[in-house]
Design a protein around this nucleic acid. Structure first.
Length: 459
RNA sequence: GGCCCCAUCGUCUAGCGGUUAGGAUCCAUGGUUUUCAUCCAUGUUACCGGAGUUCGAGUCUCCGUGGGGUCACCA
């Protein structure tokens, strides 16, 4: 059985890049009928928060990614880690190191001065003298002194790293709390994780974790390291580049379908296909098709996908989603007219909601420039008034009636369509572009249409 | 700096030794539309550089160059 996991450290929100690796892991587990685990890496007590855990789980819920079993917290598993540390100690595969932080700093400075790679010098590796008093030791693992650590990465292929690059790293701090690379290896092994799909930035942790696996006789899982997502300048994605918190996308009016579709195509592809439903992703995803190179983050396609999925949503679904954006048309009898008039010109739910508000709420003011443009002809106001009168006489109801009213008015007065359309649209919406005039008037009805015409012409 | 990874249109990507180097997005133009948008059509734009290997190289090898990652008692 395939078991994958997502293992965030709860230091803040769920990062958009993190969501992508989580998505890859999730897809791979679901495709194979395996398990997808969520494990919170909170061994650094100083930096975690329960709130961050909540935020991460909330983001998972929002995009609809489900994890199996309970949420694991490493902070609740210290007993387990201790057991394995003791085992390594008694087996002579790990040892206590009494070097202080200060001494370590001195060593590092010396190495840097000599332009050497900074690494622990192994001074306590074979120490069996009397330990210095008053120093709580750290525990270090005995890493191989020579040779090469090799593993086959699922996306990058064979990776070889000289053992000399991996020093006797610390597996438990002086306060007894185990460190990242140790607990990850223990947990992945104990939880039966078969496929570790994670960011490229963990590539160098892999040989370290392999050292642990080997020391404890665990089976080494498959690794797949996914290249980073950079910003448009090719640099690391940061808050300056816009939304990196997954939940920001929710608030900005993006649909989870669009986010997931966007993310799955960032680094992964299936021929020329661009649109993937969740079911298709699950069916088609394979880590072997993940691109080796890093990709740049560019929102153009996300907007395109989002508008695609907005158009696909049913009226009920959309009206439900719109509530969070200040528009409640769930029980509006004109719901589908309203949505049909607006959803094709909205890239986000934010845009959609503001377009709907424009129709539903009479304009409170008119943009100065737009007004000047629409009413630059002296005759414009009279024309609009006349159109209002003709509506009063015709009493149109359906969209088609309004359409005909407009056509007839234009031909009877021998004017171009723009002469009446521009002032009328401004009257109805307060803006010069938007939904079809006939659609708007049908939705708001004759009385409201006349009222809005009167409002702009009375002055 | 050491080590590791990467390199096709602006961006996301297809390509797996022989292609007019394909798709998507963006942009531009035209059409449909009573405006805008949608939709449709068309178009501009790419194999980082240099050596090899080969009858033939975007594809294989090497060397440059550029970019990224990583070098904690963080995760």
């Amino acid at each position: 059985m395939i078991v994958t996991r997502f293992a965030p450290s709860p230091t803040g929100y769920l990062h958009i890049g993190g969501l992508r690796t989580a998505l890859f892991s999730w897809l791979w587990a679901r495709k194979n009928g395996g398990k997808f685990l969520l494990r919170i890496e909170d061994t650094d007590m100083a930096r975690n928060s329960q709130q961050a855990v909540k935020a991460i789980i909330e983001a998972f819920d929002w995009v609809g990614m489900s994890y199996d079993e309970e949420v694991y917290y490493q902070s609740k598993r210290f007993d387990i880690y201790k057991e394995y540390i003791d085992k390594l100690l008694t087996d002579g595969k790990a040892y206590k190191c009494y070097m202080t932080k200060e001494e370590l700093d001195v060593l590092r400075e010396e190495q840097m001065a000599k332009k050497e790679r900074t690494r622990y010098d192994g001074r306590y590796r074979d120490f069996n003298g009397t330990p210095p008093v008053g120093i709580e030791p750290v525990i270090r693992i005995k890493a191989p002194l020579d040779g090469i650590i090799t593993f086959v990465d699922g996306v990058k292929g064979e990776i070889n790293i000289a053992s000399s690059e991996v020093d006797d790293f610390i597996i438990a701090r002086s306060d007894g709390i185990p460190t990242y690379n140790f607990v990850v290896a223990i947990d992945d092994a104990l939880m039966g994780v078969t496929d570790v799909i994670r960011g490229d930035d963990h590539l160098y942790n892999t040989p370290k974790q392999i050292v642990i696996y080997n020391a404890l006789g665990f089976t080494i899982p498959k690794f797949a390291h996914v290249a980073m997502i950079n910003n448009e300048q090719g640099k690391k994605l940061s808050k300056r580049d816009g939304a990196v918190d997954v939940m920001d996308y929710k608030h900005n009016g993006f649909l989870p379908e669009a986010i997931l579709n966007f993310l799955v195509r960032l680094g992964w592809s299936h021929g020329d296909q661009e649109i993937f439903s969740i079911e298709e992703m699950i069916k088609l995803f394979d880590p072997k098709d993940i691109n080796k190179s890093s990709s740049s983050y560019n929102l153009d396609k996300l907007y395109w996908l989002n508008s695609h999925y907005i158009k696909q949503k049913s009226d009920d679904e959309l009206s439900f989603l719109l509530v969070d954006f200040g528009v409640d048309i769930i029980n509006n009898s004109k719901k589908s007219d309203i949505l049909n008039a607006t959803k094709e010109r909205a890239k986000t739910l934010v845009e959609l909601s503001s377009q709907i508000k424009l129709i539903l709420e009479a304009p409170k003011s008119y943009d100065e420039k737009a007004f000047a443009k629409a009413f630059k002809d002296e005759s414009a106001k009279e024309l609009l008034k006349a159109f209002g009168s003709s509506l009063e006489a015709l009493k149109p109801q359906a969209k088609e009636d309004y359409h005909k009213a407009l056509e007839d008015f234009v031909s009877q007065n021998s004017i171009g369509f723009g002469k009446i359309a521009q002032p009328l649209r401004l009257a109805l919406l307060g803006e010069l572009s938007g939904a079809g005039l006939d659609e708007i008037m049908e939705i708001i009805g004759l009385d409201e249409s006349l009222k809005r015409i009167e409002n702009i012409t009375k002055g």
